[in-house]
Write a protein that binds this DNA or RNA. Structure first.
Lengths: 268, 268
DNA sequence: AAGTGGTCTAGACCACTCG
DNA sequence: GAGTGGTCTAGACCACTTG
């Protein structure tokens, strides 16, 4: 699928008939070389000009490929110098919006859930505010114990506006992935979430469900999830074991993605 | 600074002499209208074509402005439909790479630090691996109690390769911001970090330093920070009070930024 | 059919870095 | 001065959504 030009860099054979965009073919090819270690951290990637000439694409297309690598975090650009491979590992467990099922599968564990309760309740103050509803509106509340490889990891209480998915009881098996059901049955795709994490101690009920001692350290999560339009669709409160569950974050600086490159004029 | 065209949308007067890029002027103008509530969530933003015509810029420039708004998370695009304002609040406390000082100032609190110790030690296994050093190499270790508005929030132990900043003792006042000093004195700009968070209980030493009871819930942070090239420059272990410190995250889906828009061919 | 965003071209000028 | 990335133009074709 690729030809060797020179000693160090090889360029893909582009498929111009394919529906896959050219810049994406280029991005994937470079990405593969970085993953396989052919491009070492700190190494200069081919410049926009070079990619443009060798592959017979316009400079803007070459640029788009390199820029997407920068957005991924595997490369970075410096005006006047070039684009370089970053030493940061790509494959690390970075937390994103994902269900417990997705998260555990990504970590290589088999997830499942034990149903605690599945009922309809009035929203109450906190959930009403988070979901932009009146406190009298009704919610579907789903309480589950989350299990990974037979180890109970946490207790989770999920609230959804009843109006959003009135027949959820019939169409969803509570032992499976709620996100999958929301996506497939209702076309609701959760793309963002705000989350507050607190450190606490297990109550006696939590201790019983999670098979730990009362007073053990736990994480308390409060999460509100949104679809792309920013409409909140889910309010979750959960308690996870501190002894079996760790949080892994990658922190970046948001500003970089959205501000111009290099200039000295930048406003703060 | 702007003229009213029609009833709903107003367009900026662009300063073509300015060093500020055109797309950024447009982005900032729309952003301001979103912030001030003139563009409500769900509302359609002016299309690329319209911006292009009204402002006399090329479509690519208009597109770049809209795309940067999508990257910020305040808008989203749908092929064939338009670009819409997202309902998600922009100003929320989103965790980024930032020092304790920056974080507390952002939350409106006055930060300072009490020095516990400031010495040179051998790296040891864990820090050596994180910083890509041999275990015998020397580190500067800085232990501080972090205080916000006179309340002790956490104990922090920061390790830096001695070789990176051999005269840090002379050039840095441990009560101030380390990141500021690294940036101003050594030109070291930390741009990314990997972080692991665990839930635990306060030891007796931590309890004494933080003026809490032994066994109180705490967060345990382990953080490795990187400069843009991916070189690790800092390894931090810290313990923060569970009763006074909360973690706020915004989770998104990484994939969106780097994959093509709309196509059905997407590989996974 | 009209409007929209996604991709792409073939140029251009600039500011910056480096030898 | 040569090479690099940052910005910008004025077009183009396409796939998709909506009326």
């Amino acid at each position: 699928m690729s030809i060797q030009l020179g000693r160090e860099v090889d360029f893909p054979n582009l498929d111009r008939q394919s529906a896959v965009p050219l810049y994406y073919q280029i991005q994937q090819h470079i990405l593969q070389q970085i993953r396989s270690g052919q491009f070492k951290p700190g190494k200069t990637l081919p410049s926009e000009e070079v990619i443009s000439e060798r592959l017979g694409v316009s400079r803007m297309t070459a640029r788009q490929a390199l820029k997407s690598l920068c957005n991924l975090g595997v490369a970075y650009s410096q005006r006047g110098k070039g684009t370089f491979v970053s030493g940061i590992k790509l494959e690390k467990n970075v937390r994103q919006v994902q269900s417990f099922s997705e998260e555990m599968e990504a970590r290589g564990a088999r997830p499942h859930s034990k149903l605690v309760s599945f009922d309809v309740v009035p929203a109450g103050e906190e959930a009403a505010e988070a979901l932009h509803l009146a406190p009298e509106e009704k919610l579907i509340r789903l309480r589950r114990v989350r299990v990974a490889d037979s180890v109970p990891m946490g207790v989770e209480s999920t609230c959804l506006p009843l109006q959003l998915c009135p027949d959820l009881h019939e169409k969803f098996d509570p032992r499976t992935s709620l996100y999958r059901a929301l996506s497939e049955v209702y076309g609701i795709h959760i793309t963002q979430a705000d989350e507050v994490i607190e450190a606490g101690l297990a109550s006696s009920e939590e201790a019983r469900l999670l098979r730990i001692r009362k007073g053990s350290p736990v994480f308390l999560f409060t999460r509100t999830s949104y679809v792309e339009s920013g409409r909140p669709v889910e309010h979750v409160k959960s308690t996870f074991r501190g002894d079996r569950y760790k949080i892994t974050n990658r922190l970046g600086q948001l500003s970089k993605v959205n501000s111009p490159g290099g200039g000295k004029w930048t406003q703060g």
